[in-house]
Design a protein around this nucleic acid. Structure first.
Lengths: 187, 187
DNA sequence: AGAAGCATTTGACCTACATCACAAATATAC
DNA sequence: GTATATTTGTGATGTAGGTCAAATGCTTCT
């Protein structure tokens, strides 16, 4: 459903029906089943995705086969391997679906076209990027300043729904601890 | 010197002389001595700064008085408390000069005006924000996946000049370890 | 419904890094 | 140029969280 996208954008810039139709014409839609991949490490990444429904994890697997989760993307979130996307390098992240998921796909080419054709779009994406930057700074600060336990409690407060939808193992690897440690923390 | 700024912008969008003059008219300039603050925690933040020369540290001090460094900003870097800046909340960071420093100041108001008047400016800031986002993601991944020693070596490779300019105590608090640990790592 | 595969908990032990304390070496200021 | 502060190094000891291993619960698939 593109209603989500429209509401999402209009939180930042109001659009006329025509403008939204124009924006939407730059997207395609895609449905994925649980366990399917949007990208795998090494892939070329020329899309960014807006999650309409479902849940995606963005993760990197290190040399010793440990998975580190950079982001969970649920309804109304954007996700991609933005390094690979912006710099046109091979993906170092993999994106996989933790639930059946529907996304709207925006290619880099269409994104640039859209931004140059409609300043409101460029404005929207600038703001999104600014807010995203702030959110990541917060996460860095929280990794630097707080213990695993505090981060766990913080997350529990901020995204309670994740605890229903995601196995603890994955939450642990988002928080930067092992599943054993997380298990001991929650008791 | 505004030459720095022009070259910096033109890495992303070419500008005519008139356009650059227009851009520059939105900035003011400011010189600070070592140890002066650009902002302190609690302040209102309505500017973002482009460092022409010198060196600034952006840091947060936690309840137990430990300082955590989020960013060093040297020549050609942008710095602010972007959370406070974009969300108009009181600063949670303080920005202070580690050397005599010259900055170009862009108020939020002028920034928005500039972006709406000149699409090239909006495009520039969108790209900067995108690249900044990617850089922070990398830092998060490095905090999640690597040991203090690896982070130290990585930093040594990426920003060798910092090691001349900044006391080790501060590097340690950027890397997320104590100065004692850093000292032991480097031997 | 039963088998096969995940997810979670708990225990014993280990390691990277923190903390505290003090000494030596450099800066900075009067 | 001596005094005061700041920075750095090193030792002894503490602790959060990691690793490995085994037991028990849950899903999911046929």
């Amino acid at each position: 459903m593109s209603v989500n996208l429209r509401e999402h954008i209009e939180k930042i810039v109001p659009l006329t029906d025509d403008e939204f139709a124009f924006v939407l014409s730059h997207f395609t839609s895609k449905k994925l089943k649980k366990h399917q991949f949007l990208i795998q490490e090494g892939d070329t990444v020329d899309h960014s995705w807006f999650v309409v429904s479902g849940l995606i994890k963005a993760s990197h697997t290190d040399e010793s086969d440990k998975e580190h989760i950079l982001q969970f993307a649920m309804e109304d979130w954007w996700v991609s391997d933005y390094q690979a996307y912006h710099y046109k390098t091979p993906a170092t992240l993999s994106l996989s679906c933790l639930e059946d998921t529907e996304v709207l796909c925006l290619s880099l080419e269409n994104s640039e076209k859209l931004c140059s054709e409609l300043q409101k779009a460029e404005h929207f994406f600038r703001r999104k990027a600014n807010f995203g930057y702030v959110a990541l700074q917060q996460r860095i600060l929280s990794l630097l300043t707080t213990s695993a336990k505090e981060r766990y409690e913080q997350m529990l407060k901020q995204y309670p729904s994740l605890f229903q939808r995601v196995p603890k193992t994955l939450l642990a690897s988002y928080l930067g601890v092992t599943r054993e440690t997380l298990s001991r923390l929650s008791s």
